[in-house]
Amino acid sequence: MSDNTGSDKRRAANRSLIGHLLIMTAGMFAFGFALVPLYDVFCDITGFGGRTNTEAATVTERPDESRTVTVEFASNLSGFGHWDFEPEMRTMEVQPGRLYQMNFVARNGSDNVLTGHAVPSVAPGSVARHFQKTECFCFEPQEFDPREQRDMPVVFILDPEIPRHVDRVTLSYTFFTGGPVAAR
C-alpha cells in the first residue's frame, strides 16, 4: 500500500517537473525567435552592423566649416549576373552639416527587365546614426529595362555632432537583383 502511494507521489512529482522542463524548452525556442526583434532594436540603438536609415530623413543644413571628413563609397553585387554597379567617385571630402549628392551608376547587361534593390551599410557602425540620407535609390526597388544604364542619386548629410576623431566614413551598397520581372 505505502508503495503505491509512494509511486503515485513520484508520478505526480515527475509530471510537474516534466511540465516545467517542457515549458522551459518551449520558452527557449520562443526566445530564439525573440532575438530577432531584440537584435533589430539593439542595432538601431547602437548602429551595430552599420544600420542606416532606409527611409528619407528630414534634416536642416548647419555646416561645420572647421573640418572635413572623407566619405568613401563602395559598391558590391550580390550573386552573379550581367550587372555593373559603381559609384561615380570613390571618395569625397565633405563638411559635416552640409548636403551632398553622389551618383551610383548601374547597368543591366541582360536582355531581361530586372529589378534590383540596394541595401546600404555604414562603417564604422558607431557613427552610422550620424549619417543621414534625405534621398536615396536604396529606399525603393529599382526597375531596369534590358541593357538600360542610369545614374542613381543619393543625397546625404553628416550630422555635425559626429565625433571629432572620425575623419573617414564608408558608405557601402550591396545591390541585390531579383530574377526577371514576371509576365511583362
Partner: peptide, 14 residues
C-alpha cells in the same frame, strides 16, 4: 541542453 538546443532549433528553422 534544455536551454540551448531549442535556440539551435529556432536558428535552423529560420
Amino acid at each position: 541542453l534544455i536551454a540551448v538546443m531549442p535556440v539551435l532549433a529556432g536558428a535552423v528553422t529560420m
